[in-house]
Design a binder for these strands. Sequence first.
DNA 1: TGCCCGGTCGTTTTT
DNA 2: CGACCGGGCA
Length: 760
Amino acid sequence: MASVSASYLDGLTTAQQAAVDFFEGPLQVLAGPGSGKTRVITRRIARLVERGVDPASILAITFTNRAAREMQERVDALLPGTRVWVTTFHRFCANVLRRRGQYIGLESNFVIFDKSDQLQVVRRVLGEIDVDAIRAAPAKIGARISRIKNSMVGPDEFARSLDSYIGEPFDQIVAQVYPRYQSTLLECNAVDFDDLLLHVVRLFRENPDLRADYDRWIRFLLVDEYQDTNAAQYELVRALSIDTPNVCVTGDPDQSIYAWRGASIENILNFERDYPNATLVRLEHNFRSTKLILKSADRLISHNRMRKAKSLLSDGEDGEPVRLLKFLDATQEADGIVNTIRESRSRSGGSWSDFAIFYRVNSMSRELERAFTRARIPFQVAAGLAFYERAEIKDLLCYLRLIENPADQVAFQRVVNKPARGLGAATQKKILDYAAEHGLTPMEAAKEGEKIPGLSKTARPKLRFFASMMSGLTLSAYGSVSDLLKAIVEKTFYARTWAANPSEQAIEKKANVEELINAAAQYDELNADDPSVSGFLETTALVNEGDALEADAGKVTLMTMHAAKGLEFPTAFVVGVEHGLIPHERSIKSDDPKQLEEERRLLFVAMTRAMRQLFLTTAQVRAERGTPRTTITSTFLRETEFDTVDPNDPFGEPTQKRVESAGPTEPDHKQRLREALAAGGNKPLLTTGASLLSGSNVEAAIPQSFAVGMRVKHPQRGMGTVTDVSGFGKRKTVKVQFREDEPEQSFIAARCPLQPMGIQ
DNA sequence: TGCCCGGTCGTTTTT
DNA sequence: CGACCGGGCA
């Protein structure tokens, strides 16, 4: 045994070995950035199995799909063929609810509502209750409800908490909306993201036997990123580790950046209080960054007061100093970054995917995107409208939802008149009212169309047609989700309008629909043993656009500082290190030291993504909602260590050694600054993305470049030939012929799995 | 029913 | 500046 087990401890530090080899009882692993945390967790799992623990009794929970997938892959590599359950909090909860949701009034085919569905429900509820005159933004109410739910406060409790003081008018509205929002979801046999967690917590609270079953079943629980758990996740972890308290949490308080979303850093700080006999292991050895990068990051984070002291050690070389690049405005900043990347690549080789750029707010990506497009450097942005939120995709998913779960009012309303079939708002209201009155689902009501009072003569047959069409669309009739989807598109004449006039948009939509069918086919293949519509819907509801980011796509990666957590890049840029951006204005205004510390942690997270080279940038003028403003450098810059260098010679000698400049000094500099401000600010070379993209020779800049006649490979369809390329930028579309006897298929160039195989 | 215009609003968002 | 919503109109 000992000789075999040694393999899982090979090449690890003493601390890592301690965590891997620890057997039963609560274990807390404080893992600094780049300290090999995933490696430790996966090896720990392997070691447990090696000790004879049944793999089926081990559950590893992460926050993101990306983390789960990575962990799963690495466990598979260590233990080929073993079935350890690696999943996300939300998927785990969805699984529990599918089995046991009846206890709290959910059928096993419940659907998961996303933000836009949530918004629809809030809107509806606002319409029902007579909120006089006060205009409350539905999105804000939804966000507030989510926050309240994250802190595990129910509708009654929230209303009661308001009684104790004269609540703000906004919260008074929320108190009215919240209970109706919840009951509407239940009526729809639906849950939102927060419910997934809350319902399970409630389930375990109210059914101690059920909780105990799961607790016993999950003999070893491993929780990743514990510092980001919210109240519900915290209670869930506790509930699963009472009878068998073999719980291993890993995390880093210094990387807690989601408090604003309800995560409480106290969970990790209080672990030893919650589990008094807990063992603590600190992973302080950093394998990622050079000494100088670590030193700068460490100096920054040491300014946080509320903190468990932790060191960052590195055996690595000193490396290059952190460099500050100061630009006049955002356009020059973006171009300067592009040039720096170019130069760095030509100096030391490497791929475009070695570079990443982090910014505080999404809106800052635009200027960078333009610069990269101008420079024809391939890049990817981790943001944007998620695929599954696009109108045409959402429509088809709502058809699936309604087929699977006829109680889904939101899906019914979205789909009943799409494409337009003469069942407008007035008719819909009559149907839904009738349904509510008779305790029917919207689909049942639609089938009883004849009995609905007040329905117009013209609407009746149309409703009858809709109902009968829908009853023919079932999974059993078509066998697979992808075939069912194809049938929906056909039977509903969904694509009719686009087939008529193949506009740019129509082609894009068509390609998106085909992409969705591809995704369904993939699901069918993976779940051939037990395909279900709810299964497919769950995968679509719980994925994220960021999951599609390719790790090694030969593209520069652009993302928010939040999205950067967990990743690493040889060279990283942190853009706009300015007062008001990082720390963000809202955090400054809040005057809450906790929020300021979270901002500091955010910058810490961003900085520690860099392996070999870290650049910070500022612009002296930055347009804020159109109006250019002179910026002030971030207070955080004074808390760290860097060289200020000439942005035109980023690898040259520092102009000021490790001292933050008080501002522009030379008259020449001042003059240029004044000009930049006077010129209506930093008017970009090209005003809009659209005008840029309509430029004649931009096409080649598109990351995925295809040409007519090119041979391409599709993971499912195999080899094909490009027959047409149209559109620009994100909308660029390619048509591919796979087989001569089949119609060509359209794809969105930027997100299709087509691999160019050369021109023939 | 669907389009267009004008007013409003504005961090981050693992799921 | 730019995205989005609601109202008004064809």
